[in-house]
Amino acid sequence: MFDGYTSSELMSIFAMQGFAGLSLFSVFVLMALGLAIIFGQMGVINMAHGEFMILGAYTTYLTSGFFQSYLPGLFGGYFFVAMILAFFICAALGALVEWLMIRHLYHRPLDTLLATWGLSLIMQQAYRSIFGAREVGVDLPEWMMGAIPVTDMVDLPINGVFVMIIALSVAVGVYLLMYRSGYGKKVRAVVQNRPMAEAVGINSAGIDRATFALGCGIAGIAGAAFTMIGSTGPSSGQAYIVDTFLVVVFGGAQSLIGTIVSAFGISQAQSTMEFFLSGSMAKVLTLLVVIGILMIRPEGLMALKVRR
């Protein structure tokens, strides 16, 4: 597939597609982090994760509209307000969902998958009823427009860079929370040995709820970031869900680094192949490669070999 390109052209193509893939990488990381936290701790697959992300996106959309109408002077900073709002709204809804639904299903992971799918249908239709079926977009603040020229052929759009910075900051934040905080210690204790964690006085039900809420909150941030690089429709979230699951599974469910590495690998592979093949074939090929690797290494890239 590389026929007819000189090596310097190929280099530029790889660089260009590589940078283009970084937006996809950012979305994957943000989506996958939330999923991975929830899946890693509770073994629960949240099929409505994409819809939580879209909730964050609509929150950002509404916030930007509010700033435009009432606080036009502060429009440059609306995104940060929106991001915080998105986090808390999604986290609150996540906690509610955990309390109403998920906590009854912890011993039935496959059933959780079906129930959260039902939730995703309801959320999607709710968006359609409230915001309409058409996709909506937000206006970027001025400082986010434009691009940074890197080479003659490659420009880096500022919004893309910004979103990537958010993704990486959230990743670092999650890392600090999981490995450097008291909460994280408790989470890991519950993952490793739930009865024992309970015996030493950890409120495991509370930890579960907090974790689920945290995962959903991160999905909200993902949604806020998502509006910076694309428009939002009721089913935009669903388009990413399969890919993100594969990112999580591929990275090894309980490994944060694995999640990021696999998000990077999958987004780059897809973006690079897209240049040479049609978009759909690139996606098919990426998915097939991931499925193939998972068959060889079902525990994911970074999983530890543990005694079972």
Binding site: M101, L105, L114, G118, I122
Partner: peptide, 14 residues
């Protein structure tokens, strides 16, 4: 319909 279907998924499971 999507509401009904969603409720069906959740109801049957829970």
């Amino acid at each position: 319909w999507p509401f009904a279907m969603g409720a069906l998924f959740i109801g049957v499971v829970l």
